[in-house]
């Protein structure tokens, strides 16, 4: 079986990282290594999946790569935080599934790109606390103080891990897909050059149409058709095509 040069380059990173150790990124001094690479054709496009080990927890962070990214510049990049309820179950309490699908589709269609899938379920403290936050909401008790105590959230750590992952992939600059300009600065703090910000627009669908219908509440809670507040679990605001950013 022949291996194309792009796969060879990715596979070489596993060998290169075998003994990788660095002072680490961010307040947690997080360091990652590329430990495995494989082909991952998906319904959203033709991808390679790259698994990372890290020195802080037992979570395997993932890069979903399309095209030849090693050593490339201006690589379209999306950071996505794991959300089991949204990503897998298709929960409508958040828009994570829409955000992930849109990112994979867009990146699958262009020459090259990366989705960093950060395994920070419940924003750092686990799924159970996220469900506790939902339970508090169900009782009409959700407060900023309670949500922060439940672990919403350690953004800083996401950026440190993401920056290291991009460096490990040899990506020198990115076009970051985000609606949050702060994310650009945060990532640049860790030495990732963000040469452009690409708005992350979600196509309208029956589940997110209410955003368009209640566009006045840009910063506040969006209440969906079921009467539940829609949680912003990715650290960007949701922007639907046709909605002013």
């Amino acid at each position: 079986m022949t291996t194309n040069p792009m796969d060879t380059r990715l596979n070489e990173l596993v060998e290169r990282d075998r003994n990788h150790e660095c002072p680490g990124y961010g307040h947690d001094h997080v360091c990652v290594r590329i430990v495995a690479v494989a082909k991952l054709p998906s319904r959203f496009g033709d991808f390679r999946i790259v698994a990372f080990w890290n020195n802080r927890d037992q979570k395997d962070h993932i890069a979903i790569v399309h095209g030849d990214v090693v050593g490339a510049e201006n690589v379209p990049t999306r950071m996505h935080s794991e959300c089991l309820t949204g990503d897998v179950i298709g929960s409508l309490r958040c828009d994570c599934r829409d955000q992930l699908e849109t990112a994979l589709k867009k990146i699958g269609e262009v020459e090259r790109g990366v989705v960093l899938y950060l395994r920070q379920e419940g924003r750092g403290i686990g799924l159970a606390n996220k469900i506790r936050a939902y339970a508090l909401q169900d009782q009409g008790m959700d407060t900023v103080e309670a949500n922060l105590a439940l672990g919403f959230r350690d953004d800083e750590r996401d950026y440190a891990i993401a920056a290291h992952m991009l460096h490990s992939l040899g990506i020198s600059s990115v076009h970051l897909m985000t609606n949050n300009p702060k994310k650009v600065q945060e990532l640049e703090q860790y030495g990732v050059k963000v040469s452009r910000r690409l708005p992350h627009l979600l196509p309208p669908n029956p589940h997110n149409r209410f955003y368009l219908e209640t566009k006045a509440q840009r910063s506040g809670h969006f209440i969906d058709f079921a009467g539940l507040p829609r949680l912003q679990e990715q650290s960007d605001p949701v922007v639907i095509e046709g909605m002013p950013e």
Binding site: A128, N129, L148, A149, L150
Partner: peptide, 11 residues
């Protein structure tokens, strides 16, 4: 494990 909050509460 799994029964912890991430920070103290101040009300």
């Amino acid at each position: 494990r799994g029964n912890e909050l991430s920070r103290p509460l101040l009300t």
